[in-house]
């Protein structure tokens, strides 16, 4: 699969319209309901796309973890555990990496509260954001859309 330059693939506002299929080179769109049973599909997709992008296995598993955590956060926080709400995921192969855009239509994230917790605070929960930030090179939340949230994640090849 030939990769487009990242410049060509601008970070367009991904309030994309899923009523109209829009297949493009080096781009995969995945729409799933907010059902935790389906998270494995997301991980398997990531494992394949990161292989195409040239990441080593350790990195591929880490990116799968980060995107899985992002989906889990949407299910838990944007949709409060509802299993029938849409999660739209757009994967874009970049020249030297992978971009993942996650769109939800749930409760808007309070950006002031999205932070990694203190790791010295040993307690269950609250690790997801820390793991995402530890793995990914770009983590950008956008809650300025009319409804819901858009999260942009990017991971670049080191070599």
């Amino acid at each position: 699969m030939q990769m487009d330059s990242s410049k060509k693939q601008s970070r367009e506002s991904v309030a994309w319209d899923w009523q109209t299929p829009d297949p493009r080179p080096n781009q995969v769109d995945l729409a799933i309901p907010s059902d935790p049973r389906l998270l494995r599909i997301v991980r398997l997709t990531i494992m394949h796309l990161t292989e195409l992008a040239g990441f080593v296995e350790e990195e591929r598993k880490s990116v799968a973890l980060a995107v899985d955590e992002a989906c889990s956060n949407i299910i838990k926080h944007a949709y409060h555990g509802a299993t029938d709400r849409p999660i739209l995921i757009r994967f874009q192969l970049l020249d030297r990496g992978l971009r993942v855009l996650l769109r939800d239509y749930g409760r808007k994230a309070d950006l002031s509260k999205i932070k990694s917790r203190e790791l010295d605070d040993i307690r269950p929960g609250g690790l997801g954001v820390h793991l995402i930030r530890s793995v990914m090179d770009v983590v950008e939340y956008d809650n300025s859309l009319e409804d819901g949230n858009l999260l942009t994640l990017e991971k670049y090849l080191r070599r």
């Binding site: 991980r43 598993k61 799968a64 973890l65 899985d68 955590e69 889990s72 040993i122 307690r123 269950p124 929960g125 690790l127 997801g128 793991l131």
Partner: peptide
């Protein structure tokens, strides 16, 4: 072969 933060949190709860 795979564990996310919810799995880790479960084990932290058990440890506590």
């Amino acid at each position: 072969s795979y564990m996310d933060s919810s799995g880790v949190a479960t084990l932290v709860e058990g440890l506590q």
